[in-house]
Amino acid sequence: MTIRLPAADGTLRRHEPRTEPLAVAPGTPFTSRTVFAAAHVVADPYADVSPDSPAAVDWDATLAFRRHLWSHGLGVAEAMDTAQRGMGLDWAGAAELIRRSAAEARAVGGRIACGVGTDQITGGTLAGIRAAYEEQLAVAEEAGAQAVLMASRALAATADGPEDYLEVYGHLLRQAAEPVILHWLGPMFDPALEGYWGSSDLDAATDTFLQVVAAHPDKVDGVKISLLDARREIDLRRRLPRGVRCYTGDDFHYPELIAGDERGFSDALLGVFDPLGPLAAEAVRALDTGDAQGFRALLDPTVELSRHLFRPPTRFYKTGVVFLAWLAGHQSHFTMVGGLQSARSLPHLARAYELADTLGLFPDPELAQERMRTLLSLHGVTP
Rank of each mutant, 00 (worst) to 15 (best):
R232Q: 11
R232H: 14
I234Q: 13
D235Q: 15
R237N: 04
R238I: 08
R239L: 14
R239K: 15
L240P: 07
P241G: 09
P241D: 06
P241V: 06
G243V: 01
G243H: 02
V244A: 05
V244G: 07
V244L: 03
R245Y: 00
C246D: 05
C246A: 15
Y247S: 02
T248L: 06
G249H: 08
G249L: 07
D250I: 14
D250M: 13
D251A: 13
D251L: 07
D251K: 10
D251T: 13
H253W: 06
P255T: 13
P255L: 07
I258A: 07
I258P: 11
I258S: 08
A259V: 12
A259Y: 03
A259N: 04
A259E: 15
G260V: 13
D261Y: 10
E262Q: 15
E262W: 13
E262N: 15
E262D: 15
R263V: 14
R263M: 09
R263L: 14
R263P: 06
G264N: 10
G264Q: 08
F265N: 11
D267A: 11
D267G: 12
L269H: 09
L269T: 14
L270N: 10
L270H: 11
G271K: 04
G271R: 08
V272I: 14
F273Q: 04
F273T: 09
F273N: 09
P275M: 03
P275G: 04
P275S: 05
L276D: 06
L276G: 06
G277M: 04
P278Q: 05
L279C: 02
A280K: 12
A280I: 11
A281L: 11
A281T: 11
A281V: 11
A281Y: 08
E282Q: 15
E282V: 00
E282N: 10
E282I: 05
V284G: 07
V284Y: 05
V284E: 06
V284K: 01
R285T: 01
A286N: 00
A286M: 06
A286W: 01
L287F: 03
L287T: 05
L287I: 02
L287S: 00
D288F: 04
D288S: 09
D288R: 10
T289K: 12
T289Q: 09
G290S: 05
G290K: 01
Q293M: 09
G294A: 09
G294Y: 06
R296L: 15
R296W: 02
R296T: 12
R296F: 02
A297M: 00
L298V: 10
L298N: 04
L299S: 14
L299H: 07
P301Y: 00
P301L: 04
T302L: 04
T302I: 02
T302K: 03
T302V: 07
V303L: 06
V303R: 01
E304R: 02
L305A: 03
L305Q: 00
L305N: 02
